[in-house]
Design a protein around this nucleic acid. Structure first.
Length: 448
RNA sequence: GCUUCCGUUGCCAAGUGGUAAGGCCAGUGACUGCAACUCACUUAUCGUCGGUUCAAAUCCGGCCGGAAGCUCCA
């Protein structure tokens, strides 16, 4: 199998991918907290990790892809209260919208989409295990993880317990043994809560992913190949996940940790407090989901991505050109009675090499553009070489499929072919009035 | 303060030791009945100072500038 290199945040270096189980990839990325309309930043991991997924599938791996919806959270409770609806009504709505956006971005839906609310028994059991083995302790109905019990703590983020202690802010919560300890369970008064051995309350955010992975991938002792998420999740979220997994299963939860960069707006992180949040549905409606996806792939997934009117409309231009060329090829091939249903898949090694190098989509796109140019050159000559054109077409379609860029192409009917013939004939006879008429029809049918 | 990362042409963006990919915009030219599309050509020595090296955008150090994390956040 082709070698895949990926940058492992755990260790901060490039590594050759070697799956836990031959030929299989278990993949998890931290999904959204479903309390609000997803913004464009939420879509970056969706699209980035979907592209990774497509690559592994193409290479012949059996991929198990999981992404959670965090449906238990203070923000959810607060918003539900302010809207006067239940938490479930709110999260169901947001999940529905999120799934729609995933579809629209041409990302494959995950194989599993666990939610903490339905894993509550397992979460409680998991926390109890940590209490039992001394890695966690109970105070006043809260349960905290004992960070000092983990001598490797800080491995992922490059922090050390000493350094973190220095930088720690003054803690309001003095119940904890150490300011670095984090909550596994919190006793609560307000909002949805569950019974537990310690109190009525809710689990901490850091435990949820651990438990769901532990549960879904139990046969692997809760150890998966790849865990992804945004850069900001590295610390403390992922650090804490690793700490729990080490304490519970004696493994690092995932062999490879992948982190995608942020989308910046006006050179700053997009955040609610800055008031620069841009909703995915708005961008999709204005510019289209495919240009948005293309814009993301224009930049390497680990790099920050500046979002602006300029970057998105540039991607729109690029997308339009790709579509235009592809449509022209498709029509030409159909007029030549080529069977587009059963295209022979031409090798695309060069392209795969780029993606296999830590998903270098910018370089992969360079290859795509070269092929587009090649196709355009094939199209503009008088005597078209249909074999070469078909080969080019096959490659471009494969490229786009790997990148998850969807293009809608016309399927010619008998009538279409006829009109096309008449159009060409009129043009040859220099009857431009007639040819303009046919051209208008062809344009209306989205063939030209 | 501590941790992580970044600084490449007008804009976006690859390249991470062997002499600067690609895209957008712009300009020139070509094709064309008109329009659209398309094609060809043109445009940077890599924040800065110093070091290592036969050779550095690429490694090391200082400085300047920017972002993120340390607190809910993709």
């Amino acid at each position: 199998m082709r070698e895949v290199r990926l940058f492992n945040s755990l260790g901060n270096k490039m590594e050759v991918f070697s799956p836990i189980k031959e030929g299989e990839v278990s993949f998890y990325f931290c999904g959204p907290t479903v309390y609000n309309d997803p913004h464009i930043g939420n879509m970056r991991p969706v699209i980035v990790f979907d592209t990774w997924r497509r690559l592994f599938l193409k290479l012949g791996y059996k991929v198990s892809f999981t992404s959670n919806y965090t449906d238990v959270d203070d923000k959810i409770i607060n918003r539900a209260i302010s809207l006067g609806i239940t938490e479930k009504e709110l999260t169901d709505d947001v999940i529905k919208e999120y799934r729609r956006l995933v579809d629209e971005s041409n990302s494959l839906q995950p194989d599993n989409t666990p939610k903490p609310s339905v894993y509550m028994d397992k979460i409680i059991k998991y926390i109890q295990d940590l209490v039992d083995n001394g890695k966690a302790y109970v105070v006043d109905g809260d349960v905290y993880f004992r960070v000092n019990s983990d001598k490797y703590y800080g491995e992922l983020s490059g922090n050390s317990i000493e350094a973190l202690n220095q930088g720690a802010r003054i803690e309001i919560n003095s119940k904890k043994e150490s300011p670095l300890d984090f909550a596994l369970w919190k006793k609560t008064e307000v909002g949805i809560k569950w019974d537990s051995p310690w109190s009525q309350g809710r689990p901490g955010w850091h435990s949820e992913c651990c438990v769901m992975i532990d549960s879904i991938y139990r046969e692997n002792n809760g150890y998966i190949d790849i865990h992804g998420g945004g850069f900001d999740l590295k610390f403390p979220h992922h650090e804490n996940e690793i700490a729990q997994s080490l304490a519970h299963n004696d493994n690092h939860l995932a062999k490879y940790w992948l982190h995608n960069g942020f989308i910046d707006v006006e050179n700053q992180k997009m955040s609610k407090s800055l008031g620069n949040v841009i909703l995915a549905k708005d961008v999709f409606a204005t510019y289209g989901a495919m240009p948005f996806r293309l814009m993301l792939l224009n930049t390497h997934y680990r790099a920050p991505l500046p979002f602006s009117e300029k970057t998105i409309s540039e991607a729109q231009t690029q997308y339009t050109r790709i579509c235009q060329t592809l449509k022209q090829i498709s029509v030409k091939l159909q007029l030549n009675f080529r069977n587009l249903e059963k295209l022979e898949e031409k090798p695309i090694d060069e392209f795969l090499d780029e993606l296999c190098n830590d998903l270098n989509t910018p370089n992969a796109l360079t290859i795509l553009y070269a092929e587009i140019k090649n196709a355009n050159n094939l199209l503009r000559v008088r005597e078209i070489n249909y074999d070469l054109l078909e080969e080019s077409y096959s490659k471009i379609l494969q490229y786009l499929s790997l990148l998850g860029i969807r293009v809608s192409l016309p399927v010619l009917t008998e009538e279409d072919r006829e009109i096309f013939g008449l159009y060409n004939q009129a043009k040859a006879e220099k009857d431009f009035e007639k040819s303009d008429k046919y051209r208008a029809i062809l344009i209306e049918r989205k063939i030209l």
